[in-house]
Design a binder for these strands. Structure first.
Lengths: 212, 212
DNA sequence: CAATATACATACCGATCGGTTTGTATGTCA
DNA sequence: TGACATACAAACCGATCGGTATGTATATTG
């Protein structure tokens, strides 16, 4: 049981450190030091840094999937789902804390921070991106079915646009260190991209809360 | 004169290498080897790797500014300016070559690849981002003045949205290694974000060409 | 022509990288 | 109680990192 705990502690520390800066600039030593374990422990649980990150993304996906399923619960109206998504994006950090700095959802930030090298890492990120886009896809179809949108654009296209826009806003906020823009730009950009009818803009209060 | 040439060759090589992968994973040694100069030459011209990158961004900005001024020339209609921008984003590499891989505009990719460390690099990127957004801002105002848009959204907001969206698309295409999506998503996303009236979608052929 | 500055090349530095090896404390099981 | 596996800790490895120290060939200047 101590095994599992150490392993998960390493995974969480690694994720936190990596998407605060990036994959290349965070060393195994730092991960170990922050976690409070030795290098022997690290390589007892993971066979390489790359495979650690791959497992970490999968680990994070399982953690976040609960949030996503709650956000996009069929009990919520499509509009509520959208509002939930926005609230999630603007507040989601890693479990802890209360305030300022967005370091964002790793799906959206890490992808941009990875170099071309380390193929298996790139693949892991692509996989997780595709899964995330699936959620956007379902949301768009629901919005279309509910007649919330001003036009009938290809939902696959819209799902990609949503993902890419979110990705851009997240990266921008990290670059600028300013979250005020994000809080303003994220919802407005999404509404415009999706083509949400004006009467639904900021229509509801989110049903989703952190860690609920 | 040999001085200037060597210096510029290092700048160009560095930019190319860095935004093909990222700042942290490209070493000074590799930059030197690719440029075909020694490390002595490198540190004769630049006092550090970080300051090299800062100068490289400024260098690239002066190079790209000509393109941007041509793209947004007052001789072009606002629609032509927009189409030019899209053509530019989809074709711009670094001077050379003919085909496939987007490695994108460094303003949009490098920002995401930089870690939190190396403050001066971050500042250089932020500066260049702000300049780029100014062009978007002017474009939006021209489009509004010409009654090309379906609504009168805050032009500053739209300028940021444009920049962030472009940033996201560029990063996404790098992550996926697929440019087909970008070619489709870039214009459609921009049209929707901006709120361009439908009759102007894909209205003109760009007046801008690479290196013109 | 001597003196000096420029523009590099070569060799090297300590620090840090991802990863390995070895040792050991603590189980678990026969 | 002895045998073996698990879960680490500590020390160490070659490679590579950004950066420096030193040497030299060439151009410029007095």
């Amino acid at each position: 049981m101590a095994e599992l705990e150490t392993r998960e502690r390493i995974l969480e520390t690694a994720l936190e450190l990596i998407w605060q800066s990036n994959y290349n600039s965070v060393g195994v030593n730092e991960i170990c030091k922050q976690t409070g374990v030795s290098k022997g422990a690290f390589y007892h649980h993971f066979e390489s840094k790359a495979s650690l990150f791959c497992e970490a993304t999968r680990y994070y996906w399982t953690a976040i999937k609960h949030d996503l399923d709650a956000i996009f619960s069929p009990l919520n109206t499509p509009i509520q789902q959208l509002e939930n998504l926005i609230a999630f994006l603007l507040t989601a950090k890693l479990g802890d804390k209360d305030a300022d700095e967005i370091h964002g959802c790793p799906f959206f930030t890490a992808g941009a921070q990875i170099g071309i090298d380390e193929k298996e890492v790139q693949i892991a990120l692509r996989d997780i991106s595709e899964k995330a886009i699936q959620y956007d896809f379902a949301l768009v179809k629901a919005l279309q079915a509910g007649d919330y949108l001003v036009d009938k654009e290809d939902p696959e296209l819209l799902a990609r646009l949503i993902y890419q826009f979110i990705h851009g806003v997240m990266s921008f906020s990290q670059l600028c260190g300013d979250t005020d823009y994000s809080r303003q730009d994220m919802p407005r950009g999404l509404y415009r991209l999706i083509g949400l009818k004006r009467e639904f803009w900021f229509a509801t209060t989110p049903t989703w809360k952190i860690g609920a």
